[in-house]
Design a binder for these strands. Sequence first.
DNA 1: CCGAATTATACTCATTCGGAGCATATAAAA
DNA 2: TTTTATATGCTCCGAATGAGTATAATTCGG
Lengths: 348, 348
Amino acid sequence: MTHRKAQRTSAQAPDAPAAPLPAAPLPAAAPPAPDSARPGDLAERNVLVDLVAVVVAVSHDEPRVLTLDNGASLPAGPFGSDARSLQTGLRDWVERQTHHPLGYVEQLYTFADRDRTGADGQRVMSISYLALTREQAERRAQAEGTWLGWYACFPWEDWRDGQPAVVREILAPALMQWAAAAPSTVMRAQRRRRVATAFGLDGATWHDEMVLQRYELLHEARLTPESLRHVPEAERPAVVAPGHAMTGDHRRILATGVARLRGKIRYRPVVFELMPETFTLLDLQKAVEALAGRRTHKQNFRRLVEQQELVEETSEMSTTRVGRPARLFRFREEVLLERAIAGTKPAG
Amino acid sequence: MTHRKAQRTSAQAPDAPAAPLPAAPLPAAAPPAPDSARPGDLAERNVLVDLVAVVVAVSHDEPRVLTLDNGASLPAGPFGSDARSLQTGLRDWVERQTHHPLGYVEQLYTFADRDRTGADGQRVMSISYLALTREQAERRAQAEGTWLGWYACFPWEDWRDGQPAVVREILAPALMQWAAAAPSTVMRAQRRRRVATAFGLDGATWHDEMVLQRYELLHEARLTPESLRHVPEAERPAVVAPGHAMTGDHRRILATGVARLRGKIRYRPVVFELMPETFTLLDLQKAVEALAGRRTHKQNFRRLVEQQELVEETSEMSTTRVGRPARLFRFREEVLLERAIAGTKPAG
DNA sequence: CCGAATTATACTCATTCGGAGCATATAAAA
DNA sequence: TTTTATATGCTCCGAATGAGTATAATTCGG
């Protein structure tokens, strides 16, 4: 069978849909496993399961993620058999540890590659979650963990002031060199094309939601500290991409979360989970721009928000610093119901 | 804290993005788990992990899913510690069992609710995958499993001939009755709104990708056989939604896969994984219509496909049954590279 | 108190894109 | 030869989107 070449296309597109509901109201017995498919004994089949959370908040025009050990890793906890569901397990765990109430929570991805092993060499599987919250000043004191800016981890992702210098001066040359170092002509061309589309070079446009592709590309090109951990000093390349690295593959998980949020923000009103009770339209715009890492046209942004009826006026005005005072708005909770956006099960 | 009501918005939106890459080229050690967060001993933490596959093919204008035991369940297998990664584990497993080579594979969701228990009462966790393939006639003989039409499972999802009678005559009345049976006025209104938006009633438009919401709604309203398993005969409602039920929560997993594929088909050229080497534009349109469960404007469909340069002409023409013979086309593999669609890592 | 600076907010214009229809071409069947 | 069915090319319209212009309401620096 001479089939198409890309037969084994893998599944790393940056935008898969669907995330199902938690436990159904009624218990549904798990299906009996087919006998033919039970090789190995139980011990071999058992794995440790961790929950990892990408907890996001926005403050001072900067999206931040909650980290432990001074930014070394994401909050993670064991998945105990006592948890009712994954979601509640995660929610309880993170809230207990960080004292931050989580708003929106959604499953990201489950990682279980062979190299992910724990202390005793047992395989560790991580189920990652994206969680949105408001960074609350009064809670900051008791909260463990530190809020780390997204763009400290991914400096190349912030295009709010145009193409960052990192891209032009460091990453683009290094990636192109990596592309040129490929063994065959075909691979060189392929790599160049991948680099160009991912980083918006050669006239390609920048796609803000391709966060994961870009990180993986840097990883593959050995430009991240994470990818160099087991490479002997001698063989290391001269350049390393700037940006705060993390333990294990936590930065990859973070990239997954950032990508997901950037994609979602377009067609679902999730920004409001990150906003205070009332806000001006400029506040809202700044938050969206911070998350997307790019500027938007002011008037068009307002038109969009208003014609979609996402917000409603309050009688109050902002205590303006300078310029004409702006009206304070409030999110219209009704839209969650109207458009069946928050999932099938409403709160309560 | 009198915060917003929908504070605990859950994460069941029908369209989350992002699915990361498999194992990074270099091993990355897993982060040491924080000691403070290790309650329970190992035995308590261990869970069984299964892989469940939603394998999709299209034949005779009907999308089908691969099932075992005459449609009773989806192919599922244990996740052994020997598998290199989840993807390859799944791929090997399904290909060995069904003799069907998988094309595109992507992770769907990880289920681990408390009620999911195995034979010995241990908790079972399922990582579900969506896989696309071509149903190959010559392999059908040796392949185990049967191809079950989507719409046998979800009759209400096929709108190719307009609103199905099931919706109007059975589901809509039953759901509205369920809504009316809610304890409070607020809940009644909420339920009505959810039903209307999910099923396109009361002037709301039908959204083909809300497959999961609809299934969950039926489940919650106790209209599915799955939701009635542990309900005593006496308490069962009079009506049950028609449609082929499955073991455990396999139909929920299938709904997740259908939703994902319907969403994805819009902006990623994944249909071609389901098409033969060459095809007419009508073939392609029929496949898309079958998956989406709704008709499309012929001329506009062609315009879209051609202006996006997804296909290229072949010299051959279809041996037409009746009418003017159509040109055979072929998928332009290049688009996968050009748009970085197939993920970061190209085949090989 | 005045003008400059700054921000808010209301309109307008052009382009693109998606839905829907009309017209014509090419085949088999009646 | 007419009918029927499909393929294929083209036009029209309205909604959504990108980008610019104009005016209003403040603070701030003299």
